[in-house]
């Protein structure tokens, strides 16, 4: 749909009209997802396949990124704490940073780059090659088969990858702390986990699920809106990544505010 009314005139301005229509289309797309997700058929095999693609295939990248993040963040934080003679606080600092923010954010951004672009390009190429229309002709609901399965897979797998990233990141941090302070793993974990609560862990998982949903739904949205042949496929993949990352950061700000609000109630 273009940025014009029924007779082709601009309502406010071209860009504002396009943004408003994009928000409307996006909201309708999300609304349709929640309508379709509860209705059978559930395409369980396709969901598992997408979980495999999103979760298992991203695992090596998450492992490497998480480990490096843990090591580098610890290494960079050490001088600041050492200035106060507080290097014993490193495990607490790293655990808070990783569990509350870094692990979900890094995982979501990597998934946005790898999975989002993949989904955008895949659905985009299906769209421009009219495979989506072919599915409709074959009495298969393409939204159900393509969008719901992929979005569910990202929504489920990003939290799992986040937990995994947190563990690997803490292990990387422990390697650095162990190399400098000769601390044991037990004392490292005890020191680290004593400063976080259920709210931190719970919000981290919920946050990751929200990020995963955003990555999946945005990638599917841009993929199914691809036009103009192979160029459109490329644009869909790029738009998926850019929009996913933007939305992830916006959601991060909002969720942190909610967290602070909940913390004020002693949670």
């Amino acid at each position: 749909m273009g940025a014009h009314d029924e007779v082709g005139r601009t309502v406010i301005s071209t860009s504002i009209d396009r943004l408003a229509l994009g928000v409307h289309d996006g909201a309708a797309f999300v609304g349709r997802f929640f309508k379709e997700v509860a209705r059978p058929p559930y395409h369980l095999r396709e969901i598992i396949h997408q979980c495999y693609e999103v979760g298992y295939r991203t695992l090596p990248l998450i492992t490497l990124t998480g480990l490096i993040t843990g090591i580098v963040f610890t290494k960079q934080s050490r001088p600041s704490l050492a200035a106060f003679g507080a290097t014993s606080w490193l495990p607490s600092l790293i655990t808070i940073a990783l569990i509350r923010s870094l692990a979900p954010l890094i995982t979501a951004l990597i998934c946005a780059g790898k999975v989002g672009s993949s989904i955008g390009a895949e659905l985009g190429s299906m769209k421009v090659t009219e495979q989506v229309e072919a599915m409709e002709v074959s009495a298969i609901n393409p939204f159900k088969y393509l969008v719901v399965t992929r979005t569910l897979a990202t929504t489920l797998m990003v939290p799992a990858l986040t937990l995994y990233c947190g563990v690997v990141g803490l292990f990387g941090s422990f390697l650095n702390v162990r190399g400098n302070e000769a601390a044991s793993l037990a004392s490292f974990l005890k020191s680290g986990f004593s400063t976080i609560g259920f709210l931190d862990l719970g919000s981290s998982v919920v946050k990751a699920a929200v990020y995963g949903f955003s990555v999946g739904i945005i990638a599917c949205y841009h993929g199914l809106r691809a036009t103009s042949g192979t160029q459109g496929v490329g644009r869909a993949a790029t738009a998926s990544v850019v929009m996913s990352m933007f939305v992830i950061f916006v959601e991060e700000v909002l969720i942190v505010q909610v967290n602070v609000w909940l913390r004020g109630y002693g949670l």
Binding site: R45, I48, Y52, Y56, M157, A160, L161, Y164, F193, G197
Partner: peptide, 28 residues
């Protein structure tokens, strides 16, 4: 095989989550 891998992957993630909950619960 994909189903088995996804199952194992999910189980490990749930184990990590439960381990984290128990550790935090124990320490607090």
């Amino acid at each position: 095989r994909q189903a088995v891998i996804v199952g194992v992957f999910t189980t490990i993630a749930i184990a990590i989550l439960i381990g984290g909950i128990l550790t935090i619960g124990d320490l607090n």
